[in-house]
Computed example of a mutant assay.
Amino acid sequence: MNRLILRATACAALMSAALLAAPQVRAEDAANPDYAAIVAAPDRSDADRQVDQRRQPAEMLTFAGVKPGMTILDMAASAGYSTELLARTVAPSGKVYAQDSATVLERFVKDKFDTRAKAPAMKNVVHVVRDYDDPIPPEVKDLDMITFFFFYHDITYLPVDRAAMNKKMFAALKPGGLLVIADHSAKTGAGTGVAKTLHRIEESTLKQEIEAAGFKLVAEGDFLHHAEDPKDIPVFKAPVPIDEFVLKYQKPQ
């Protein structure tokens, strides 16, 4: 009996030594996804890979700080390009709410989102069809992040109460939650005046509107800046890369 006890004790000691000798995985490393690998996933579509060339999704996910387990609202999800990337990143335990208005879905997106939603990568996505100035279901609270990519300028010429929309986004975030917003740059002084014709918005105008809701600017990304863009050409007809700004806001703790 004593011999068995001694043998068990020796085995336990050897296991403990092996565990101590093994390289330890830091919590911060485990929480930081390999964004490049997510973008390079073999089951992503060729069409999305074409969009990657101008959207730089690995840099965007890194800048935003998207992590597994997060709950995120993707405003103006459209056909779901960004929604799917977010869903892949927050998986397996996170969730993404993909918002769009019924009017935009019917006129411009048709069944594109529904087709994408059938993919396994979208299993943690909830499609939210609501108006932009009332975008969040009442049961959705304490979001970790809201993303709003390249559509805020369109909101400015639609019948949307932007101040109400921004306040509701603010309210839906948990304290310390983030709003990451990107759009096409307009010339200084243009405001929202070229939103419908050029599909651009002046950065300072967008900042003023977002900050009026209580958001605090915490970071600005330069990875989509293109100084060669004269900012006076419609986005969809520009012969050069479009200058775009990326902003990260936080709801104060």
Score class of each variant (00 low, 15 high):
M1A: 14
M1H: 10
N2K: 14
N2M: 11
N2D: 12
L4Y: 12
R7G: 08
A8Q: 10
C11R: 14
A12N: 02
A13T: 14
A17M: 13
A17H: 02
L19F: 10
A22N: 08
Q24Y: 05
V25Y: 09
D29F: 05
N32T: 14
A37T: 07
I38F: 05
P42Y: 06
R44T: 07
S45G: 06
D46Q: 06
D46I: 01
D46Y: 01
A47W: 03
D48L: 03
V51T: 13
Q53K: 15
R54C: 00
R55M: 09
R55A: 07
P57K: 05
A58W: 00
E59S: 13
T62H: 09
M70T: 04
L73N: 05
D74S: 12
M75V: 08
A79G: 05
G80C: 12
G80F: 01
G80D: 08
G80S: 12
S82R: 01
T83N: 08
L86E: 04
L86C: 07
A87M: 11
A87S: 13
R88T: 05
V90F: 00
P92S: 15
G94Y: 00
S101M: 09
K112T: 05
D114G: 12
T115H: 10
R116C: 00
A119Y: 01
K123H: 10
H127E: 12
V129F: 02
D131L: 13
D133V: 01
D133S: 08
D134G: 00
P137N: 04
P137Q: 03
K141N: 11
D144A: 04
M145F: 10
T147P: 12
F149G: 01
H153G: 01
T156I: 04
L158K: 15
P159M: 07
V160G: 08
V160L: 03
D161P: 10
R162S: 14
M165D: 04
K167I: 10
A172S: 15
G176N: 05
V180P: 00
I181E: 13
I181Q: 14
I181V: 14
H184Q: 12
S185E: 08
A186Q: 06
K187F: 02
G189M: 06
A190M: 07
G191L: 10
V194G: 03
E202S: 06
E203G: 04
L206C: 03
K207N: 08
K207I: 11
Q208Y: 01
Q208W: 01
Q208R: 14
E209G: 08
A212M: 10
A213W: 09
K216N: 02
A219H: 02
E220L: 01
D229F: 06
P230V: 09
D232T: 14
P234W: 04
V235R: 12
F236A: 13
F236H: 11
F236S: 09
V240I: 08
V240S: 08
V240F: 02
V240K: 13
I242R: 06
E244A: 15
E244W: 00
E244S: 15
F245T: 00
F245N: 00
K248F: 00
Y249C: 06
Q250P: 03
P252L: 11
P252E: 15
Q253W: 03
Q253H: 10
